Each structure stands twice: as C-alpha cells, then as structure tokens.
Simulated assay, not measured.
Amino acid sequence: MHIRSIFLSALLIMLPLHAHAQQRLTVVLMGDTGFNGPGAHVSEAGGFKRGELVAVEDAMAKIGPVIRGDVVLANLETVVTDRNDIPQREKMFVFRTHPAHVRALVRHGIDVLPLANNHAMDLGGAGAGETLRHMEGVPGLRAFPGLGRTREEAMQPHVFVVRGAKVAVSAVGNAGGGLPAREGEAGMLREDRDFAGVAARLAGEPADIRILSVHYGPEFAPLTEKAAQERFRKVESAGLTIIAGHHHHVARGVELSDGKLIAYGLGNFLHLGTQDMRRFDICRDYGLIVKAGLLRGRGGYAVETVEIVPITKMHIAPEPLTGDAARLRVEVMNYLGSRLGEGRLRFAPQADGSGLWCAAGATDARCAGWQAPEASPREAEIAAACGKDVRRGNF
C-alpha cells in the first residue's frame, strides 16, 4: 500500500463514525462555460447558437441534477455584459454573455465562477470592468476570482464559508493584461508569468480548503505535458487542496500529488460558442465533471473519493453519457491517468455511467468493495486516438 493511502486510512480510522456525515464535503469541478455564440450580440431573452436563441433552463435541464455539491465551480470563459457597443479585440473568437444568464447558471447551483482565461479580455479592459461590475451583484455567487482593478486584486483569493469550512479560491489564465486598470476597467494576470505568485498567495491564505483554477496549455491535447505536471506538483507542496485545469476543450488525466487533487483538464461544460465535440475521436468527444469527496480529520480535509462523470452535447445542452459509451470514456480517463505516473487515479466504472476512485479505508458507502479496474480491452484503440495530432475545426 502506498504511504499516502496508509496515511489517509489512519486519518479515517481516527475519526469518530458519527462525525463522518457532518464532516464530508463535495466539491464539483467543471470546465469552460459561456452562454453565447462567437461574435454574437447579447440578449436577455437567451444566448445565441448559430443565430437561434437558447434558454439557460433548456440548456441545464439534463445536467442540473448531476452537479449538486457543497462547492460547484465552472470556468466562466466570456465577458459578462448587457452592452453591445463595447469594441471587441481583433481575434478569431470573441464571447460576451448577458448577466441574466450568469444569474440563471448560479440559480442552478454553480456558485464559483473563475474569470481568468483567454476570453476574459475579449472586450479589453472596459469589458473586464463590465464583468466585475455584474459579477459583484449576482445573488448566490460565492466567488469569482481572476480579474482585478489592480495586480493585488487580481491575485487575491476569494474566500467564503460553507458548512463550517473556510474555502479560498484563486484563478489565473492565459492572454491576460491591462493591469493596473483604468477607472471603471479591470485586467488579468498571465499564467505564464504569474502562476507561481498566484499559487503562493493562495497557499498563504488561512483556509481549510484551497482551490486554484488554471486556464493553460494547448487546445485539443489530452496528454498532459511534463512541464505542466512538474509545475502543478511543485505548487502542491505549498498547501493547495485542488487544482482545476481547463482550456484544452478535452479532458485530461486526474491524479493525487501529496494528497492534493489535480484535474489537468476538464474539457467543456456548457458553452454555446464551442463546437459539437462529438465530431472528434473517443479521446476528445466528451467533457468531464469531477466530484471530489473531502473528509475532515484532525489534519484537515483529505480527498476520500473522486467521481468522474463523462458528458456530451456541451455545445448546447450537456447531459451525462450512459451505458457502454460512458464506460469507454471512463476507460479513456484511466488511460490518460496512466500517463501521469505514480499519483494517477484509476476509476472503476459504475452502473450510472460515472467512474469512482476511493482512498484506502474510505467510509463512503459507495466504496464498499471498491477495487481499481483492470486495463481496458480497448487500450490500443484508446492509445491510438489519444496520440493523434488534432487541430481546431470550424464552429
């Protein structure tokens, strides 16, 4: 048994049984989210997908019940504004989402919306300022880190308390700039320059759970680069609980490093500005929801369970995959994890289409008799798909 598993087993044994239900928290992680098509004007009536209006209620109908948790995080990859007159930057894809749709997403349970990514500055500093102004008034939204009017504000963790646990969340992404910001505007730090500083600032925040959202890396690449692994693992020793990675539009492997959970890539969640990923191969045609079960012991919160839910139709109305299709994508995730080394997680396919990993000694009822799965009989096919060089298609 690995030393981390022995430590967690001892931690779980030391906890009194009656405390388990009260001390267990679920953190739900999801990828790229936005509610409008590229270049589309905003409308309170709905988001546009290929010129047709879509309502948040319809888009969330099948996935809403799946994302229940104590902390529910999704990367918000868009400017948030009710204005169509702000000039946009010269780039291939520009996203703006009406604040009414952000409020609707929060009503569906998404309460943490990191803002740092390569579309946060699509409308320049003025658009980023609009985003901050609107996010500050969303009822039920607990955290929206990643933008700021100053460098310190952009770096500052957002802190809140849920069921007695103090949670701190920070975010850093690619294609930042605009700091210090002009009056009424905002800017963003860059992950290639500021990753270590943002992580260190978060690690120093007095909190029970520390979550870092990172928008990084090449698109459509499911295999995690060694440099990214090394960088994220270094940060792990500084006291972070979870690192949530995104930007690739495809899922990547999941691991534990020194007891800290790293989801290297969550893929898309719900973004009307993205293409239908079903046109790609089995290594790229799904998104990923990660549910981390954290159990509080004398040494703080430890990762007891990790559940993954492969999803489809992320471009318009996400829903969980089921049956053989879901099982195959869980096996793909196990293959991607196998490329990460010692800390990789292997998920046992479940009857509902999800995959489950349990720490040794876990007291979660779902973990009774849990065993790591064998390699997939389709391993060669999976490896061939994940090894392809895939480029962006047309929306």
Rank of each mutant, 00 (worst) to 15 (best):
F7D: 07
A10E: 14
A10F: 06
L15W: 02
L17H: 12
A21G: 03
A21R: 12
R24S: 11
R24V: 15
L29P: 02
L29M: 10
D32C: 09
G34N: 14
G39V: 10
H41K: 12
V54G: 06
V54W: 09
E57Q: 15
D58Y: 13
M60S: 03
A61H: 10
A61T: 08
G64Q: 15
G69D: 12
V71E: 07
V72C: 09
V72K: 01
L76Y: 13
L76N: 08
L76C: 06
V80E: 04
D82N: 11
N84C: 01
D85V: 01
Q88W: 03
R89S: 14
K91H: 09
K91D: 04
V94W: 02
V102N: 02
A104E: 10
V106R: 04
V112R: 05
V112M: 07
P114M: 12
N118K: 03
A120C: 12
L123S: 00
G129Y: 01
E130T: 00
E136D: 14
P139K: 01
L147M: 08
E153V: 11
Q156D: 15
H158S: 13
G164E: 03
G164W: 03
K166T: 15
K166I: 14
K166E: 15
S170H: 11
N174K: 13
A175M: 09
G177D: 01
L179E: 03
L179R: 08
A181P: 05
R182S: 14
R182M: 12
R190V: 10
R193I: 08
R193S: 13
F195H: 10
F195C: 02
G197F: 02
A207T: 10
R210H: 06
S213G: 07
V214H: 12
V214I: 15
V214L: 11
Y216C: 05
P218C: 03
F220T: 10
K226E: 13
Q229V: 15
Q229P: 01
R231E: 12
F232P: 06
E236G: 12
S237W: 08
A238P: 02
G239Q: 07
H247R: 14
H249Y: 12
G253F: 06
S257M: 03
L266Y: 10
G267K: 11
L270H: 07
L270Q: 04
T274L: 00
D276H: 00
R278P: 00
I282M: 07
C283T: 06
R284L: 09
R284H: 04
Y286N: 13
G287W: 08
V290L: 12
G293K: 05
G299H: 00
G299P: 01
G300L: 08
G300F: 09
A302W: 11
A302H: 10
V303T: 14
E304Q: 07
P310I: 06
K313D: 15
M314L: 00
P318F: 13
D324G: 05
A325C: 03
A325F: 08
M333G: 03
L340T: 09
G343R: 02
R344C: 11
R346Q: 14
R346Y: 14
F347I: 09
F347E: 05
P349F: 10
A359C: 09
T363G: 03
D364E: 15
D364Y: 07
W370V: 13
P373W: 11
P373M: 07
E374P: 10
S376V: 09
A380F: 03
A383T: 03
V390Q: 08
V390D: 04
R392G: 03
R392V: 14
N394S: 10
N394V: 09
F395Q: 02
F395A: 04
